[in-house]
């Protein structure tokens, strides 16, 4: 059984699903646990390498300090902004009620 070698538990999958506001069926939980475990296992192969002398990298490209000047450019038209919103009111995005602020 793959579960024995799993790099992620069902509980962890359910926790991540809850954070992502996803309701998963039992079948999906099993399926995603296996898939996520495969991905983590693949990434885990890196740990087999000798990396003692390699310093941590924040970014794969050797670049730093990429900046933009602080100059205002035109924003987009409000009608276009709202165009893809499922619902809108008074030029604002309308979303289901949120209780906490």
């Amino acid at each position: 059984m793959t579960q024995d070698k799993s790099f992620i538990s069902k509980e962890q999958v359910l926790h991540v699903a809850a954070l992502a506001k996803l309701n998963l069926s039992d079948q999906e939980v099993t399926k995603f646990t296996a898939q996520l475990s495969d991905i983590l296992g693949y990434a885990n192969e890196l740990s087999e390498l000798e990396l003692k002398d390699v310093s941590p990298t924040a970014h794969p490209i050797e670049l730093e300090n990429v900046f933009r000047d602080d100059t205002v450019l035109k924003s987009i038209d409000n009608s276009k902004v709202i165009q893809n919103a499922p619902e809108s009111l008074n030029s604002q995005f309308k979303v289901p009620p949120i209780l906490d602020d």
């Binding site: 619902e87 009111l89 604002q92 995005f93 309308k94 979303v95 289901p96 009620p97 949120i98 209780l99």
Partner: peptide
């Protein structure tokens, strides 16, 4: 928070 009554905990929608 948008509602007919003006109360947050009765709000019917949120505008962003």
């Amino acid at each position: 928070h948008f509602s007919a009554s003006g109360r947050i905990h009765e709000s019917s929608a949120t505008l962003i």
